[in-house]
Simulated assay, not measured.
Amino acid sequence: MTPPDSLAWTDAPTMEKPHAPATERNRDPILAILRRHFTDRHRVLEIGSGTGQHAVHFAAALPHLSWQTSDRPQYLPGIRLWLDEARLLNTPDPVTLDVNAPPELRMRFDAVFSANTLHIMSWPEIERLFALLPDVMTPDAVFCYYGPFNYGGRFTSASNAQFDAALKQDGPQRGIRDFKAVDALARDAGMVLVEDAGMPANNRCVTWRQVAA
């Protein structure tokens, strides 16, 4: 069975352009979802941009969007290599965003995207991420997340169970999250569920919308 997609970057920055093979496989199914939900958007904040591959692919396909990449400092050089090579007009320089240190973002975004980050982060970090979102999103913003989920405390496939075990070997704080628990965090942050779409390789693409107070 095909294991779920995951970004496989290293902890140390490198001058060679980083590459995550899974991104090549999942980018077009994700793009189909973004075309539905980001058509009327203007500024996207990508949280955990990783290699930068998603950013250049989506920004090229959706030129009406300003696609703001972000990640922890050690990943920014690799992201810049992808952005510099693509030379797109709608990809500003990446910014530092670490949920353990409040970001200093000077603007709000009407769309947020993240892929394969929740199973890497610890649960307290996920809580901090969702608590942060209202501060960086406009009142009607859309948040689109791609990655695997459990439902009702159960894995959706044997390969997801194997993937979860591998994650926990790398760090006991990691693991595939239960959809209900994550959706509760989104609701606490003022969002409502718009779509929970099945994706290849036992993944989901979940979209929430911020509800104006």
Rank of each mutant, 00 (worst) to 15 (best):
L7Y: 08
W9I: 11
W9G: 13
T10F: 00
D11K: 06
P13E: 00
P13H: 00
P13T: 00
E16Q: 14
E16R: 13
K17P: 04
P18V: 01
H19N: 14
A20F: 09
A20M: 11
P21L: 15
A22Q: 09
T23D: 11
T23P: 06
R25K: 12
N26G: 03
R27C: 08
R27W: 11
I30D: 03
L31C: 10
L31W: 11
L34T: 02
R35S: 07
R36E: 13
F38W: 10
F38C: 14
T39A: 15
D40F: 08
G48T: 14
G48Y: 01
G48I: 06
T51M: 08
A55T: 14
H57S: 08
H57W: 07
F58T: 04
F58R: 06
A59I: 05
H64Q: 13
H64C: 13
S66Q: 11
T69I: 03
D71S: 07
Q74L: 00
Y75M: 07
L76M: 03
R80L: 06
L81M: 08
L81Q: 14
L81A: 08
L81P: 05
W82Q: 13
L83T: 10
A86F: 08
A86Q: 10
L88W: 04
L88F: 06
L88G: 08
L88Q: 03
L89P: 05
P92Q: 03
V95C: 12
L97K: 08
D98A: 01
D98I: 07
N100G: 12
N100P: 03
A101V: 15
P102W: 00
P102A: 04
E104N: 09
R106P: 00
M107Q: 13
R108G: 01
F109D: 02
F113I: 03
S114W: 00
A115M: 02
A115I: 03
H119G: 07
P124N: 15
I126S: 13
E127Q: 14
R128G: 07
A131S: 13
L133S: 07
L133V: 10
D135H: 07
M137K: 00
D140V: 15
V142A: 07
V142R: 06
Y145G: 04
Y145M: 13
F149G: 11
G152D: 07
G153V: 09
G153P: 12
T156S: 13
A158V: 15
S159M: 13
S159G: 05
F163K: 09
K168A: 10
Q169N: 07
Q169W: 02
G171W: 09
G175N: 02
G175Q: 05
F179E: 02
F179Q: 02
L185H: 10
D188W: 00
A189G: 12
G190C: 03
G190A: 02
V194C: 06
E195P: 04
D196H: 06
M199Q: 06
P200Y: 14
A201H: 08
N203L: 10
N203V: 09
R204I: 11
C205L: 11
V206T: 08
T207K: 02
W208M: 06
Q210D: 01
Q210K: 15
Q210E: 05
V211T: 15
A212Y: 04
